[in-house]
Simulated scan of single mutants.
Amino acid sequence: MLFDNIVVIAKKEIYAVKNINDLNKLKIKYLGKKGYITVQFLSIKNLNKKEKIKKSIIFNKQKKQIQTIIINRKKEIELEKNDKKFLNQKIDITLPGKYIKIGSEHPIKSIINEIEDFFINIGFKIVTGPEIEDVYHNFDALNISKNHPIRKEQDTFWLDKNILLRTQTSNIQIRTMKKEKPPIRILTSGKVYRNDYDSNHTPMFHQIEGLFIDKKVTFTNLKGTLSLFLNFFFNKKYKIRFRPSYFPFTEPSLEVDILNKNKQWIEVLGAGMVHPNVLKNIKINFSKYYGFAFGLGIERLAMLRYNINDIRLFYENDIRFLKQFKFNNFI
């Protein structure tokens, strides 16, 4: 082989082959242990240093050029093979495409988004806050007495004597009232934690609470807002009952029931006018400003909407359960 044109000769031979096996044979011929380039390196071992360096540079250059040609030809042969394979295939263009299953939003998340959108549209803003909370923001500022049963370990997850997992999202309301001046119109949502577990309770669940503080907020405003929301959420007008109740942080307090299709009253949420002691704790002038607050459990509303009798089903990650959600007419 001529020393100067070895790359040209190799290129002609490489591009003449039509398959990978023949290409590999040429690779061995030129770059193998007994191939042309290896022989050339062995032939210069007895030359002087200057000549040896000169020849080595040339042989390395030839080696790299031949390697590049082989790699490029291999890609071309593989591409030609694939093209021929696809061209020879018979494709029925009338066949339906492959069905790709698309996931859906978890029903709890979907309901949270739906409720938040409703209250945003009537002027509320969404506020979030810490799930690990101190006693003051979770209990004391909300007018919850020292001996209230919810403070006990049977109901609350305590991390130490002063730190706990929040038992309601009202802690966010306290933090917001400390930072902002009235008027305040917020909706708080998130996970809350209580030490309870059965078909109607889980240690972690989701809660949404609303707060409206201004100079002329009345009980009528509260009733109107809740009626508007419930008719929106259940997509119909239902008979709603407001009955007296008790919560430490509201006065007066109430619970709201709706009449289902079986003529049964179903409790859906709790609410009331913000207790003056709560406003006093946050240093808001309770003789000038008034407000209402309400709270509802997302899982509770989801169970009512979808006629589910066990809250734990939402958290078992059973695809058969999660994929079947559609609007129904439970109520």
Rank of each mutant, 00 (worst) to 15 (best):
M1N: 12
D4W: 14
D4F: 15
N5D: 15
V7G: 06
V8T: 14
I9L: 15
I9N: 14
K12C: 03
K12A: 05
K12Y: 05
E13W: 13
I14E: 03
Y15E: 15
A16I: 11
K18G: 12
I20S: 11
N21R: 14
Y30D: 12
K33V: 09
K34H: 13
Y36R: 09
I37M: 11
V39K: 15
Q40C: 10
L42A: 03
N46C: 00
K52Q: 14
F59S: 08
Q65V: 06
Q67E: 14
T68I: 11
I77P: 08
E78R: 05
E78M: 09
E80W: 07
K84D: 02
K90S: 12
K90P: 00
L95E: 11
K98G: 01
Y99M: 07
I102G: 02
K109I: 05
E116C: 09
E116N: 10
F119V: 07
P130Y: 01
E131H: 07
D134I: 11
V135A: 13
Y136Q: 00
Y136G: 00
H137I: 04
N147E: 03
K152E: 13
D155W: 10
F157I: 06
I163E: 00
L165N: 00
L165M: 08
T167Y: 08
Q168L: 06
T169A: 05
N171R: 01
N171H: 10
Q173I: 04
Q173N: 07
M177D: 01
K179C: 03
K179N: 09
P183W: 11
R185H: 13
T188Q: 03
S189D: 06
S189L: 08
N195Q: 14
Y197S: 06
S199T: 12
P203K: 11
P203D: 12
F205E: 08
F205Q: 03
H206R: 00
E209G: 01
L211Y: 00
F212Y: 14
I213H: 01
D214F: 05
T218K: 09
N221M: 05
K223A: 00
G224M: 01
G224H: 04
L226D: 01
S227E: 10
S227A: 10
L228T: 05
F233A: 07
I240A: 01
R241K: 13
R241P: 02
F242N: 07
P244V: 04
Y246L: 03
E255D: 09
V256M: 11
V256H: 07
I258P: 02
I258T: 02
N260Q: 12
N260F: 06
I266F: 14
V274Q: 09
H275D: 15
N277Y: 08
V278Y: 12
L279T: 10
K280Q: 09
N281T: 03
K283T: 04
K283N: 13
I284L: 08
F292P: 09
G297N: 07
I298Q: 01
E299T: 08
L301D: 02
L301N: 02
L304T: 08
N307M: 07
D310T: 12
I311Y: 10
I311K: 05
E316L: 09
N317P: 10
I319C: 01
R320E: 10
K323H: 02
K326S: 08
